[in-house]
């Protein structure tokens, strides 16, 4: 089975480069002829994840595995972790600072959007260790 494996370092505290991993993945999916709606869904979810890693975790890793029938994106960071995942999943809940909000982020829609736009969403987080999010979009 054909399988494309891509790995990216997401630079922490760098809002200028944030989104580059997503851009690259989007470009690959376009080249593979994936349905634009599916590309849009994974791109929104992955971009939210990248931004979250920049805001909250001083960066991390984004790993994309593209199969014939789906894409699986793992977002792995070594940040401080999420104390209460259920609370973090509530639309509008955010711990972002005013500086971050002034950039247009911190609406508290990151995790809800990741869930909303993917077919499968999984999150594991340990305080002091980090967070791993797995996003799957089926084509």
């Amino acid at each position: 089975m054909e399988h494309l494996h891509l790995e990216y370092d997401v630079d922490g505290n760098n809002f200028v480069s944030a989104g580059q991993a997503t851009e690259n993945v989007k470009f690959c999916l376009k080249g593979l002829g994936v349905n634009p709606q599916d590309i849009r869904r994974i791109a929104i979810a992955m971009y939210e994840g990248e931004i979250n890693m920049v805001i909250h975790a001083n960066g991390g890793k984004a790993i994309a595995d593209i199969y014939l029938d789906k894409i699986v994106v793992q977002l792995i960071d070594s940040g401080e972790g999420i104390a209460n995942i259920e609370q973090a999943m509530q639309p509008g809940f955010s711990t972002a600072t005013e500086d971050i909000r002034s950039l247009g982020f911190g609406a508290g829609m990151g995790l809800p959007n990741m869930k909303k736009y993917t077919d499968d969403f999984a999150i594991e987080s340990t305080l002091g260790v980090g967070t791993k999010i797995t996003l799957t979009v089926k084509f």
């Binding site: 809002f15 200028v16 989104g19 851009e23 929104i44 971009y47 247009g104 609406a107 829609m109 736009y117």
Partner: peptide, 28 residues
């Protein structure tokens, strides 16, 4: 102006009206 909302709701080929002026506007 809240980028998470824009990402989810702006549709292809639309005009996006905003007061955001930083580089993340391009990504969105």
């Amino acid at each position: 102006d809240l980028l998470s909302f824009v990402m989810g709701r702006a549709t292809p080929n639309c005009a996006w009206y905003t007061i955001m002026t930083n580089v993340n506007v391009c990504a969105v």
